[in-house]
Simulated scan of single mutants.
Amino acid sequence: MKKYLLSFALALMSLTSFAQADYEKIMSEKIARIEVCKTPEEFQALSNDFQRIGSKESNQWLPPYYAAFSQIQKGRILMRNGNMQELDGIAAQAEKYLGTAQSLAGADNAEIHLLRKMAFSLRMMVNPAQRFMTDGARAAEELNIAEKLDAANPRIALIKAEDTYFTPEQYGGSKTKGLEQFKEALAKFNAYKPKTALDPNWGRAEAEYFISLSAEKNK
């Protein structure tokens, strides 16, 4: 009987090990696609993929996190193209995924609070004049929470640089200051180590892009 139980336990451990390896492989492949997706449709498909992974790996916070991030990236592309009418729905979907991620990861996860900030910013952009004091204030609150939880996080520095760079000067923005903040963000990227290979590690390319624009301008 003891021999049977030992064999069963070893077999179970082996299956769990294989399942974990399969999860990590699939997640790694999907995370790599974040850097190559260019259209709202591609990000929607990627979000769907992460959602499906999350439905199978219901104890993991990263699949719903990345599903939310893909939605937010979809919204940011639409925003840049002047297509604001879908942003409320996209933000709501992202917030739904983030609720799931937070229930698994806990309330003290800076990466989740940062995405909440980005979702509220999408909502604000539907009508900045009317929503600055509501969604804009909530975005600022989430960013503040994220920074208190993980001040060394380069993605927090990146989003702060974005806000400074793209905010009109009459409202406190500055392209010059924003570029300096992108440099600070890149320095943090150089020093920051994700906890695991699957943990959030996006944003470096954007910081490098804006710094390169500054370098070209100064030639």
Results as ranks from 00 to 15, higher is better:
Glu180Cys: 01
Pro194Thr: 01
Gln170Val: 10
Leu158Thr: 02
Ser174Pro: 02
Glu180Thr: 07
Thr164Ala: 15
Gly172Cys: 04
Phe182Trp: 07
Gln170His: 00
Ala157Asp: 02
Lys160Met: 10
Asn153Val: 05
Lys177Thr: 15
Glu180Gly: 13
Phe189His: 10
Lys193Glu: 12
Ala197Lys: 15
Pro168Ser: 07
Asn153His: 13
Leu158Gly: 01
Phe182Met: 05
Leu198Ser: 08
Pro194Ile: 03
Pro194Ser: 04
Glu180Ile: 10
Gly172His: 05
Thr167Asn: 07
Tyr171Asp: 00
Gly178Met: 11
Lys188Gly: 00
Lys188Pro: 00
Lys160Ile: 12
Ala197Arg: 15
Lys195Ala: 14
Phe189Ala: 04
Tyr192Pro: 00
Lys183Leu: 08
Tyr171Gln: 05
Glu180Val: 04
Phe189Lys: 03
Arg155Gln: 12
Ala191Glu: 04
Thr176Lys: 14
Phe166Ala: 06
Pro154Glu: 01
Ala161Asp: 09
Tyr171Asn: 00
Leu186Met: 09
Phe182Lys: 01
Glu162Tyr: 15
Tyr165Pro: 03
Lys193Trp: 05
Lys193Cys: 02
Gln170Arg: 00
Leu158Val: 01
Leu198Cys: 08
Lys195Cys: 03
Asn190Val: 09
Ala161Trp: 02
Leu179Ser: 15
Pro194Leu: 07
Tyr165Val: 07
Glu162Ile: 05
Ala185Pro: 03
Leu179His: 13
Lys193Val: 07
Ser174Asp: 10
Thr176Gln: 13
Lys188Trp: 09
Asn153Glu: 09
Ala185Trp: 05
Pro168Cys: 04
Asn153Gly: 04
Thr196Val: 10
Thr164Asp: 12
Glu169Tyr: 04
Ser174Asn: 03
Lys175Pro: 01
Ala157Glu: 01
Glu180Tyr: 12
Asn190Leu: 12
Lys160Leu: 13
Pro194Ala: 09
Gly172Glu: 05
Phe182Cys: 04
Ala161Leu: 09
Lys183His: 11
Asn190Lys: 14
Ser174Cys: 03
Thr164Asn: 11
Lys160Phe: 07
Gly178Lys: 10
Ile156Val: 14
Ala191Met: 01
Pro194Gln: 08
